[in-house]
């Protein structure tokens, strides 16, 4: 458990805040940490900046994330990690597809040759869109008040996936599955960062497992070949009790 001081803070959207801090650990894009909010719980968070200065981007949707998002400059955050396997790097033109707060873990991959499909319900929730070059930015909103009206798949119709050396995808599992199904028969390379509810983060509790692979240690990043054999991907998962439910 480490205690790190928040050096700066940026409110990205009405419900999302980024906390910046300096931490010596070597963290690669795609890896995550477990952040403890004493008294409220522990939250797995991917790093939205992975250099000397690091960053977590917090969406306030529950008590613990709500409190974490309210952390101010000078206050401490308590964390353990980093955990998980990172994204494999790729040169050339890359495509980043992020749904909701999924763009946070893709953010460290943004460069001048990256095209972004940034999808959310409302314009206010479009995350890190401005960090892409203006001509490589495809915004999609469900309410249609900004960019294309629709979902991630509608944004994908604006590009040819085969034009990219690598496609990186992060978001809710149903979205990942939809993207996977859309590109699985094409000549593309893609990596998907899975989000599953986690308890331990260290490969022991079995909460986040998909077909025997632990998202916390074998993932969270999986490639097309790995996903091909995962019958649980996009179809079923276990609740906190271990009860199996459909996704």
């Amino acid at each position: 458990m480490e205690h790190i001081e928040v050096k700066r803070k940026k409110v990205d959207t009405p419900t999302v805040a980024s906390l910046y801090f300096e931490w010596d650990a070597r963290v690669l894009p795609g890896q995550f940490i477990m952040v403890w909010v004493p008294g409220l719980g522990e939250v797995p968070m991917s790093l939205s900046k992975t250099g000397k200065e690091k960053c977590i981007t917090v969406k306030a949707y529950g008590e613990s994330t709500g409190k974490l998002a309210k952390t101010e400059v000078g206050e401490l955050i308590t964390l353990r990690g980093p955990y998980g396997k990172p994204f494999k790097k790729s040169g050339g033109d890359i495509l980043l597809i992020g749904g909701g707060s999924g763009m946070a873990s893709l953010r460290p991959l943004i460069n001048r040759r990256s095209t972004g499909i940034i999808a959310s319900r409302t314009p206010e929730e479009l995350l890190f869109s401005e960090e892409f070059n203006a001509d490589k930015r495809i915004e999609v909103t469900e309410d249609g008040r900004k960019g294309i009206k629709g979902i991630v798949l509608d944004g994908m119709d604006m590009v040819n996936p085969e034009d990219f050396s690598m496609i990186y995808v992060c978001g809710p599992e149903r979205m990942l599955k939809a993207v996977y199904d859309k590109i699985k028969d094409k000549n593309v390379n893609a990596q998907f960062s899975l989000e599953r509810s986690m308890k331990c983060g260290i490969g022991l509790c079995d909460s986040c497992s998909v077909n025997g692979y632990q998202v916390c240690v074998d993932g969270p990043v999986f490639d097309m070949n790995q996903l091909r054999d995962m019958t649980e991907f996009g179809t079923s998962k276990l609740l906190a009790s271990g009860k199996r439910v459909k996704i």
Binding site: L204, D206, N211, G212, Q214, L238
Partner: peptide
């Protein structure tokens, strides 16, 4: 108690 609430995980182990 370790990696044994999901049938697929037990099978893999």
């Amino acid at each position: 108690g370790i990696l044994d609430e999901n049938g697929y995980t037990m099978k893999r182990i």
